[in-house]
């Protein structure tokens, strides 16, 4: 929830798959750091997956969003589509040359690469526009 009153129009929702692989955890770490840096706010994909109305409606109404999947299985995208939420900005880490494995020692350069990709996916994203 927003600390202040009312959501600024520029607030960006960040949804990470947070899956059980290096790329899944890279999505999570990038989302955490982007939130800490004030780029946007990480939001609970699990709440959307559970079809809880507060989470689903928030994702439907937010003007700007970036969904991050670690790999082509695309769980984040599938969850959003299942809840009938338009996918706006979208990033798949393996499409950015990051190989999926089970090594959870995340590399700083890959975290930065993911953060840059998320920022780029948001560029030019206008309110309500679908950017894929």
């Amino acid at each position: 929830m927003a600390e202040g009153c009312c959501t600024p129009g520029s607030n960006i929702m960040i949804l990470a798959c947070s899956g059980a692989s290096n790329v899944g955890q890279l999505t999570n770490q990038a989302a955490v750091e982007l939130t800490q840096e004030g780029f946007g706010k990480m939001f609970c994909l699990a709440g959307i997956g559970a079809h809880l109305s507060g989470f689903v409606q928030s994702a439907k109404d937010v003007p700007q969003m970036v969904a991050i999947d670690g790999c082509p299985v695309a769980c984040t995208k599938a969850i959003l589509e299942h809840a009938q939420i338009t996918v706006k900005g979208y990033v798949v880490l393996t499409e950015h040359g990051i190989e999926k494995n089970k090594n959870f020692k995340l590399k700083r350069e890959e975290i930065e690469q993911v953060k840059a990709a998320v920022r780029a996916a948001c560029n030019g994203q206008s309110e309500g526009a679908a950017v894929k």
Binding site: C6, N11, S53, G54, S58
Partner: peptide
Amino acid sequence: FGTPAVVVDGEVKSVG
């Protein structure tokens, strides 16, 4: 995710 929000009979209808 933000406010204002409207809830009708327990279901969130509008956010932000």
